[in-house]
Design a protein around this nucleic acid. Structure first.
Lengths: 228, 228
DNA sequence: TATAAGTTTGACCAAATGGTCAAATGACGT
DNA sequence: ACGTCATTTGACCATTTGGTCAAACTTATA
């Protein structure tokens, strides 16, 4: 995973090796450490999602996690490292969802599974999803390597599938990238614009039933829109 | 327009009256003022788009505009007011694009016109579009009134059109809101994720021809996906 | 050209920022 | 019980932040 990350200045990062997150731990206290890192990551996710990387402050994150700021810096040496750890979690989830594209040889099934997984991801991890979107909007300073390697390869491979489906007369002659951009945008929307949706829903967030209806409609629209 | 805006603390804003932007101007020098405000807004758009509201600094904006920071504060009393002015520009453009939905009684034509207009907006004003998305992602602290009033009304009215089209058998039985979320997300994507798209395009931004192809495919997918 | 207003700008400020440090505290194996 | 090392934390720091101010400078007009 770490190979996807580089520090914002492009130079070597103290996190280039996973171990480096913790200060040379010979006898780490796993329970304490795990709980503190969890609380800090959860707080960081909230603050980064609300304020963006630049607007978030380590003081606000520490306050929300209920620890002194110095303790935050004990577990995550810099704000950058903490942010990186948060982004890393989303990346893992992103890759898991991506795998669901490959469960079927039928484009309708593959697309439905993938769109459904991405919708569920946006629903289950709205804060992390928003951070992911914000990271991409800002030009992906933290995940450029992921874009250049894993994502490029993933898209290229799926483009091949799409071309095969087109040749088999199962899909219209579409550009696979445009299709993926549409899927990514539409599914992310359910995390990014949750507040806007709530406003247009009479001030209440989408309940589970409404979300499931939306998921079905999104799947149906895209699938029907691209199948021949 | 000003009725859409409220200050971040919800209290009265010095910008609630348009005139208040400038310090009691009896004999403003229009040429100088217009040029300075233009340069500052352009610089602000770049910096806000790159860094987000929280990450942007007035010093960086002033530097990019080529004026001393104190001069920035002469034209825009606070960072908040400058941000508000930037958002106001996008709102105007958003409303103009929205109008293109109403040019036809046929859903295929109305949707094609609206999606095309939103695509063109994302292409023509990518920075402003990104700021708009970021604003919505952050819970719309600046445009809540717009969401509550104009947008709510706009969506409600178009939902009526959609229902009529469904009853006439021209559209599948869809939820109009879900359709609009999809349109907003997909079109915004061409501003928000321009960098990601460039990476997947071999490092080069989409050229005009590729963009026009994408526009056609987006329109075709959505229209074919929702028409009966 | 005097004047009154609009404009420009360097110097300044209090508060907040990310980060450091050393001393104190706690837990665990022996 | 003790030594060791992980953990905790208040105090501290240099820098940056948004914003202010008063003095200087411009320009239209009487």
């Amino acid at each position: 995973m770490d190979q996807f990350f580089r520090s914002r200045d492009g130079g070597a990062s103290p996190l280039d090796s996973a171990r480096a997150v913790r200060p040379a731990a010979r006898k780490a206290r796993p329970a304490i450490r795990a709980e503190n890192e969890r609380a800090l990551l959860e707080a960081a996710e909230q603050v980064f999602a609300e304020e963006g990387f630049g607007g978030a402050t380590t003081a606000a994150i520490a306050r929300r996690a209920g620890v002194p700021k110095a303790n935050l810096h004990y577990y995550f040496v810099t704000k950058d490292a903490l942010y990186r750890a948060v982004v890393e979690r989303v990346l893992t989830a992103w890759l898991a969802a991506a795998a669901s594209f490959d469960g079927s040889d039928d484009p309708r099934e593959a697309l439905a599974a993938y769109i459904g997984a991405k919708m569920d991801l946006a629903r289950a991890m709205p804060l992390a999803s928003r951070i992911w979107s914000a990271e991409i909007m800002r030009g992906a300073p933290m995940i450029q390597d992921f874009l250049d390697t894993t994502l490029t390869d993933w898209v290229a491979a799926r483009e091949t599938s799409v071309r095969r489906w087109i040749a088999a007369g199962k899909l219209k002659p579409i550009d696979a990238k445009v299709l993926f951009y549409m899927i990514w945008a539409t599914t992310q929307q359910y995390a990014n614009a949750a507040h806007e949706m709530a406003t247009l829903n009479g001030g209440r967030p989408l309940d589970d039933a409404a979300f499931e209806r939306a998921k079905r409609q999104v799947i149906a629209t895209i699938v029907d829109g691209v199948t021949a």
